[in-house]
Design a protein around this nucleic acid. Structure first.
Length: 744
DNA sequence: GTCTGTTTAAGCACGA
DNA sequence: TCGTGCTTAAACAGAC
């Protein structure tokens, strides 16, 4: 729909392709200079460059003209009809037109996960019961295009609820002796290969920094001299990164909350004789969703566990029929029909694929209820998730194919470097994705192919040396592309960050195993202690011998990080300290549960989150406010951090229009005055002096006005030049329905 | 010969 | 079933 936002009638009209960052022309060169790849840990500057949409102009190169950009479509379709209030959880630009790129902070880690729903994590091979100690642990294949799309489709729905539940989990308990023993053989080896001692997630946040070679990019973007020290420490991580954990990582439903636990049937029941670790929990093990299997039937056979594992083994790694393991087909197969897991295509329902339970709100439960349930069940159930977890042996696996298309990989590279030769693109990709380090050059052909056929990429001038040309991103980035890029940036960001968490988890697990081994060795010299240990193990729930679930551990890490951040101390506990805390917590559960519950209530933003319905209602109010041209109060013109958004701000209260526009994903568009009038009013869109020219400024959003309860003032059959649906997305979504236009 | 860039084609997955 | 998006493969030509 189009919301008429009357603007100051002065100023020059800008082209429809102008976007909030379009007035950054004068700064582009400066930005480039400042962005000379001085990548520091946690520096995602290259991810921000998308917002310098005029940057190409600053290059001074002549690019081949481009035509229509089919590239956009795919990345916008999934947003149709969904509120994009996830942006509230990010860091809105302090000055949207010029600083549209959200700054990364330590809390962006959380924000990213709030921006995604947990269900983007792909089904895990889980055990319906604790596997035998010798049970092989394996991952279930590589990233696929389908998984990539799955990430997209799961982008917008139900994230608050899931994250609330995510946060309700705690760090994993220390493994029992048996579990440590069982896991030590395979995991220790894997962790030795996958973990650089001493790493922590924060160190890993500079994963985007090229490890070996900084590609010179024709002077505009120089090599980074900052690549040293910490970067070297992560080189092994690059070499050994294995993302299978993320592939195998999904909450089919949340143990505490899903009202549909029963539909998982035996798959979610603890093995007979193994009491739930924390009765009277309703918790179930991480739902088994053996989507690794190429056979939907096997996937739906939630019996999972061993069979699924063996299937995974057979699948092996690498290029094994990735399409057959598309999470879509997989998840849909695995998803119980009882969940009404329809959801074809639409963003809101897309999450249903395999994420069934995820959309807690989709199941008719208010988010607050879920939060209450989470917080209430924290007592005694904190460890549940962590006790039904799986650690995979990823040591022997070849790198998985990243869940990004070639187009995206190229785009990332070009966004990072501005412009690259083909070989530079090769290098950039292979530096960051070990999958492409292989000698197999077929993927290079695909890269070249994509460069050629995709108008999003433009061939620039000849490379200074050698054959080939410099390639760059098309300068035709409009506002919607900025949004699409924001999404993709988050995906990439999340991709690496979750990987970082995984490494941390493995490291902790290794330390725990070593500790357990040490204890066992000590016990061997003390029969009495050994006997005591045996007795302890006898009383230990069988589930405790299960491996840690990567999801749970990752979530626990998230929670820890959040807690630490919220505590304000900024203290960075070592893994051992955290481990000790976990142990302490485990052993003093009752008291600590209470404390922890309070801790959660104090630190976690559950009570500040709104349900989907409420969000939509709120959005409707906001947009109605815009529509009615009520002067919106300025409360916080800058929402800078996660805390601001979730803890300090009440976005039910009136906020500045700038914020509204940003958070409502309104896109600037210029057009003729559809509704007439109101052009003289000042909408206080400060900084957008380029707008106007006698024409109204409109904002386009994906929000369905009818869904928001916005009454159409009247319906106008727009003339050809009045059609503001300039992009393919809107054409597809609104179908030229003039009733979708909101005019003032 | 190798690299680069273009073009065509086939196949698969997915959604409408 | 069809259209679309993506991947992969292959052929070809030009530049180095």
């Amino acid at each position: 729909m189009i919301v008429n936002m009357p603007v100051n009638g002065t100023g020059s009209a800008s082209s429809p392709t102008s976007n909030p960052s379009s007035n950054n022309n004068n700064n582009s060169s400066t930005t480039n200079q400042n962005d000379t790849n001085t990548n520091l840990p946690g520096d995602y500057n290259f991810l921000k460059r998308k917002f310098d949409d005029q940057e190409d102009l600053a290059l001074g190169h002549d690019y081949e003209p481009i035509g229509a950009n089919p590239w956009k479509k795919r990345h916008l379709d999934y947003d149709a009809g969904d509120l994009h209030f996830h942006l509230q959880l990010e860091q809105p630009p302090s000055n949207p037109p010029t600083n549209a790129a959200p700054a990364q902070s330590s809390t962006s880690f959380i924000n990213d996960l709030f921006s995604y729903e947990s269900s983007l994590l792909v089904p895990a091979v889980a055990y319906s019961h604790c596997p035998p100690s010798s049970a092989p642990l394996d991952d279930n294949g590589g990233w696929t295009g389908g998984e990539l799309l799955e990430l997209d489709h799961r982008y917008n729905s139900g994230l608050q609820a899931e994250l609330g539940q995510l946060n309700a989990t705690l760090p994993p308990p220390p493994p029992t002796s048996s579990s440590a023993q069982n896991a030590s053989n395979h995991t220790q080896q894997s962790t030795q290969q996958n973990v650089s001692p001493g790493q922590n997630p924060h160190q890993n946040q500079h994963f985007l920094v090229p490890q070996k070679q900084r590609i010179q990019s024709a002077g505009r973007r120089t090599s980074s001299g900052s690549v040293s020290g910490a970067n070297e420490a992560t080189e092994a991580d690059f070499e050994d990164k294995n993302l299978s954990w993320l592939l195998n990582f999904k909450f089919d439903e949340f143990p505490h909350l899903s009202p549909h636990n029963q539909i998982h049937g035996q798959a979610v029941n603890l093995p007979e004789g193994s009491a739930p670790p924390h009765p009277p929990s309703t918790a179930v093990p991480i739902a088994t969703s053996p989507c690794s299997s190429s056979s939907p039937s096997s996937a739906s056979a939630a019996s999972a566990s061993a069979s699924a594992i063996s299937t995974n083994q057979s699948l092996g790694s690498g290029l094994v029929d990735q399409r057959a393991r598309s999470p879509k087909s997989c998840s849909s197969a695995a998803m119980p029909a009882a969940l009404g897991g329809g959801g074809n295509g639409s963003a809101g329902a897309s999450a249903a694929g395999g994420v069934a339970g995820v959309g807690s709100t989709k199941t008719g439960r208010k988010f607050e209820e879920l939060v209450m349930e989470v917080t209430s069940e924290l007592d005694g159930n904190d460890m549940i998730v962590a006790e039904h977890v799986v650690v995979e042996d990823t040591s022997s696996k070849a790198p998985k194919k990243p869940p990004f298309t070639y187009t995206e990989l190229i785009e990332y590279a070009l966004e990072d470097k501005g412009e690259l030769t083909v070989s530079g693109i090769y290098q950039w990709i292979s530096d960051r994705f070990p999958y492409y380090k292989s000698n197999d050059d077929r993927w290079k052909n695909s890269v070249r192919h994509n460069l050629s056929i995709n108008p999003h990429f433009r061939k620039g001038v000849k490379a200074p040396q050698g054959a080939g040309h410099l390639w760059a991103i098309s300068s035709g980035d409009s506002a919607e592309n900025v949004l699409a890029w924001e999404h993709k940036k988050q995906r990439l960001d999340l991709f690496f960050k979750m990987e970082s968490i995984n490494r941390e988890r493995i490291q902790q697990h290794q330390q725990q195993q070593q500790l357990q081994q040490h204890q066992q060795q000590h016990q061997q010299h003390s029969p009495q202690q050994k006997q005591h240990s045996a007795a302890q193990q006898q009383h230990m729930p069988q589930a405790s011998s299960c491996m840690y679930d990567e999801a749970a551990v990752a979530v626990a890490t998230l929670t820890q990080e959040m807690m630490q951040t919220n505590s304000g101390g900024g203290s960075t506990e070592t893994s051992q300290q955290q481990q000790q805390q976990q142990q302490h917590h485990h052993h003093h559960s009752h008291q600590n549960h209470q404390n922890h519950n309070q801790h959660h209530q104090r630190l976690l933003p559950f009570n500040d989150l709104l349900s989907d319905d409420e969000l939509r209602k709120t959005a409707g109010q906001i947009l109605n406010g815009i529509h009615r041209e009520v002067e919106v109060q300025s409360v916080n013109s800058i929402i800078s951090t996660y805390h601001d958004v979730l803890l300090d701000n009440d976005y039910l209260n009136p906020i500045h229009k700038d914020v509204v526009v940003t958070e409502s994903v309104l896109r600037q568009q210029h057009g003729t005055n559809l509704g007439g009038g109101n052009n003289n009013q000042n909408n206080q869109m400060g900084g957008n002096s380029h707008m106007g020219g006698g024409n109204s400024q409109y904002y386009i959003t994906e929000i369905d006005p009818m869904e928001l309860g916005i009454q159409m003032s009247h319906q106008v059959e727009p003339s050809e030049e009045e059609v503001l649906f300039s992009d393919e997305f809107n054409l597809n979504y609104f179908g030229y329905n003039p009733g979708s236009d909101i005019v003032a």
